Amino acid sequence: MRALVISDTHGLLRPEILPLARTADVILHAGDVGRAEVLDDLRAVSPAPIHAVRGNVDRSPPLSSLPETVLVELGGVWVYVRHDLKTLDLLPTEAGIGVVVSGHTHAPRLEEREGVIFLNPGAVGPRRFRLPVACAWLHVGGGTVQVEPVVLER
């Protein structure tokens, strides 16, 4: 199973994301969607289920009704999505979570702590500072996870 992990679109769905979305089995959006049309446009090009959480800029309907967190099982692995990692409200190891996905900082980051993968795919919306425009793939199957970072622009 291939999960496309994106975050911080801030209302901009870059054309480079569309071919990736077409081949995804599932799409995870870690918040700061910015405009409902971003999710509509993803649905228009991809039959994959989309799981999106509310970010700090998603204050107006319909985005304000997005959940703060999503817990989804992918290929035998529990994946927990929350926009801001600083507001993590559980202990992933105790909850049986294999991957924690977050956004907010716009900086790609991948680390493993106590057997849990923490992934911030970076941001695919408007460029911030000198950070790359980036997302990631999660390759999940048989209870294992491989992360493939994707840099769209440096």
Rank of each mutant, 00 (worst) to 15 (best):
residue 55 G to L: 08
residue 132 P to C: 08
residue 82 R to H: 13
residue 21 A to W: 00
residue 5 V to T: 10
residue 151 V to S: 06
residue 75 G to M: 13
residue 69 T to F: 06
residue 3 A to V: 15
residue 137 W to P: 04
residue 120 N to G: 08
residue 148 E to D: 10
residue 22 R to T: 10
residue 78 W to R: 15
residue 35 R to G: 04
residue 149 P to V: 10
residue 149 P to G: 10
residue 98 G to F: 07
residue 93 T to E: 14
residue 35 R to D: 15
residue 88 L to M: 01
residue 35 R to L: 12
residue 88 L to N: 04
residue 25 D to A: 11
residue 58 D to T: 09
residue 112 E to K: 11
residue 104 H to Y: 14
residue 16 E to I: 04
residue 61 P to I: 05
residue 152 L to R: 01
residue 42 L to Y: 08
residue 151 V to N: 06
residue 127 R to N: 00
residue 51 H to R: 15
residue 144 T to S: 14
residue 10 H to N: 07
residue 58 D to V: 02
residue 109 R to M: 15
residue 93 T to F: 09
residue 54 R to Q: 11
residue 109 R to W: 14
residue 148 E to I: 14
residue 43 R to H: 08
residue 33 V to T: 00
residue 61 P to R: 12
residue 28 L to H: 03
residue 68 E to S: 12
residue 142 G to R: 11
residue 54 R to E: 05
residue 49 P to G: 14
residue 42 L to M: 05
residue 54 R to D: 05
residue 35 R to W: 07
residue 120 N to D: 10
residue 117 I to Y: 03
residue 41 D to E: 15
residue 57 V to S: 10
residue 32 D to M: 06
residue 18 L to K: 14
residue 99 V to M: 06
residue 71 L to D: 06
residue 139 H to M: 11
residue 151 V to I: 15
residue 32 D to Y: 07
residue 13 L to H: 12
residue 54 R to M: 08
residue 99 V to N: 02
residue 15 P to M: 03
residue 77 V to T: 13
residue 43 R to K: 12
residue 10 H to Q: 02
residue 1 M to Q: 08
residue 7 S to D: 08
residue 29 H to C: 02
residue 87 T to Y: 13
residue 16 E to A: 15
residue 149 P to A: 13
residue 2 R to V: 05
residue 138 L to D: 00
residue 122 G to D: 02
residue 75 G to S: 10
residue 96 G to C: 12
residue 120 N to P: 00
residue 118 F to I: 13
residue 78 W to S: 11
residue 25 D to E: 09
residue 111 E to P: 01
residue 148 E to T: 13
residue 135 C to V: 03
residue 133 V to T: 13
residue 9 T to N: 02
residue 23 T to G: 14
residue 66 L to K: 12
residue 52 A to R: 01
residue 86 K to Y: 14
residue 149 P to Q: 09
residue 76 G to S: 11
residue 110 L to G: 08
residue 38 V to R: 08
residue 79 V to E: 02
residue 25 D to Q: 02
residue 80 Y to S: 08
residue 41 D to C: 01
residue 33 V to I: 14
residue 49 P to N: 09
residue 20 L to K: 00
residue 137 W to R: 00
residue 86 K to R: 15
residue 128 R to T: 06
